[in-house]
Design a protein around this nucleic acid. Structure first.
Lengths: 366, 366
DNA sequence: TTGTACGCGTTATCAT
DNA sequence: ATGATAACGCGTACAA
């Protein structure tokens, strides 16, 4: 679509618009004002055609004479013309921007490679479109700034990766524009697309690996049981065990942290000495749990086999190469963006929910 | 400034604008179209005043009769009116948005808590303004989409935290609008504000700590010497040593990674057995180096004292609580945003470069 | 204090 | 194929 030449360094002199320094503050305490950019009008004048024609070549309309087109192309290049976004949005009623809603605790969110990958996926998909991404932190006052911003027509759609945003504001947003959730399940009453990963299945695969290598006393170190993902992983673990006719070992909450993982492992060892396999619901927890096992003089995987989850950089912190479950986080992000873009371009029959598959990565710990 | 009521759930019926479902795709394969939002015009009609008056109360002009103001407030609330951003930008020539330029390797970037904190700081400052943040990945084609976007008037200013963006495009951007760098030094030829942390001083403090506790054979494990920050930290280390009249030990590149840290520590131990103190230029490297020391049966800090850098979550991975240097990353982000906002509001005499101080966090490893 | 009218830069609908 | 011309929604001199 829209094909406009790039703003090359030798964009040439901007005839009537030039100003010594391209931008400066006025004498008064007026706000900073940037140099006037060349407009359609200017290009038209230079090319000796009308604004309409320029608009046509900018938007790739087929019905324009090659000669005119060439003249316009020239003028655009010489002037370094770039369409004004605001004007375009105003008339087209589209901002060509989408918002990424993240939890208020943005540091923790961004610092987590899982989420970072999702964001990367989103941006990577967006890169090959002419949409841009705008960051919205679900602050204390979500009813306020964020809603006003979204309602102001600043974006055409929303992707939310936050787990914490209030259902209330989400519902309002979903009534305003298309919305897609990532890494969380649907919320009743909120009209949104959902892209999630199959936590149950991932956990089941991990547990099955333990079963396959002969473990019979299998425990799990879970995340906080208040989180959906934790629950699903416990569920998957339980399912594989059940299908194999095995008795489930203990479930210990490891808080999705390294220290928590270590603590949980100690607890497992203390209360369930016969343990010979553990499904640890995150690599980070595993990196804390593994040393505990090793310190006891137990061998991995011979005495106790360990399977992690995430295939995150935390695996590097493990002395024994970790068998783990990879989540397609970047693909998720890409899919989220793709869905939104699709809907925005009029594709009405996208599936409401997309479940992405996990992959078992076999290394040495199990 | 602009004070507009929030879009409450009971924003009331949008009289002439209502549509059953707030948004839907048209029959044709036209793009998704959202419901028409109430305009200034509508509010004016309902309040029985002119558009101009509504505009005045929306923008908090003092010269409007209390009665009118009240009537307008009413109407705005009832209609759930929110100013259209595009229209506003078009006339005011300001987008009230700023761009965050990040390196192409966005996963690595966002996954790093240091950068995540900076971003958090930026958003936190922006939250108390009416500016929004737009994410720009410095992709392979920086000359292309990004430049066009920025030149299109989509943002009023730019903050760049990337280390890799080409000087070329940066220069062009800096000619277009105000720009502030974070965590990197100024680039000749590029007109930008700089907010950086004093790496030299931080490293000097860390090393001084080692000196103060009696170490005399002090090595350093550095980051890649191609990076400015690495060089600065080595410089700080060297400076403290020099000031204390001590001979510098070896400098070993640990690649800013955990494995690299371990490898580097082994090298130090092998080639410099008399070592009794090491300044490790990142916590992550330290978390790799510490086990190496411990495995040798050496005590920390009695036999070898260790000081890290960053005060990152990686410190948790250290068995001995790590003495380290804290960087004010979130404050940096806030400062960056603050500077940009200041400049945009006409504040011409901000210092071109701001150096933020580091803090030594003393724990047990030194 | 309030309203009228014009302009911001584009797109799109008409004629031509 | 091309060119007037009318929106798009808002801010703001200027007039009243």
């Amino acid at each position: 679509m829209t094909q406009v030449p790039s703003v090359g360094p030798k964009a040439g002199r901007r005839e009537p618009y030039v100003s010594a320094r391209p931008a400066r503050a006025t004498g008064k305490d007026r706000a900073y004002v940037r140099a006037a950019a060349p407009t359609l009008e200017a290009v038209a004048a230079r090319a000796g055609v009308s604004r309409a024609t320029v608009s046509r070549v900018v938007n790739g309309s087929p019905k324009v004479h090659p000669d005119s087109r060439e003249a316009v192309r020239q003028a655009i290049a010489e002037l370094g013309y770039v369409p004004n976004r605001a004007a375009r949005s105003l008339v087209s009623q589209q901002s060509h921007a989408i918002a990424l809603v993240v939890p208020e605790d943005i540091t923790r969110f961004l610092g987590d490679v899982y989420f970072a990958s999702i964001v990367a996926g989103i941006t990577s998909r967006l890169e090959q479109s002419d949409y841009v991404l705008s960051l919205m932190v679900a602050s204390q006052a979500p009813e306020g700034k964020m809603l006003r911003y979204l309602a102001g027509g600043a974006v055409d759609g929303v992707v939310v990766v936050s787990h914490h945003t209030s259902n209330h504001s989400l519902r309002q947003i979903s009534e305003l524009m298309p919305m897609v959730f990532g890494g969380r399940s649907a919320i009743p009453g909120v009209d949104a697309y959902v892209v999630d990963v199959n936590n149950v299945d991932g956990a089941a695969k991990a547990t099955q690996r333990l079963i396959d290598r002969g473990c019979t006393n299998i425990a799990t170190i879970s995340g906080p049981l208040s989180m959906h993902s934790s629950l699903d992983r416990v569920e998957g673990w339980r399912r594989s065990l059940h299908d194999a006719g095995l008795m489930p070992g203990p479930v210990v909450d490891g808080d999705y942290s390294m220290l928590g993982g270590a603590r949980a492992m100690r607890e497992v060892l203390a209360n369930y000495p016969e343990v010979d396999g553990v499904f640890v619901a995150s690599d980070l927890m595993t990196s804390g749990a593994m040393p505990v096992v090793l310190e006891r003089g137990l061998r991995i995987p011979e005495d106790i086999a360990l399977v992690g989850y995430d295939d995150s950089p935390a695996v590097e912190a493990c002395e024994i190469p970790l068998t783990t479950v990879r989540q397609p986080s970047e693909e998720m992000g890409r899919e989220m963006a793709d869905i939104l873009l699709g809907v925005l371009s009029g594709d009405t029959d996208r599936p409401r929910t997309t479940i992405m598959p996990t992959t078992l990565i076999v290394r040495e710990s199990a």
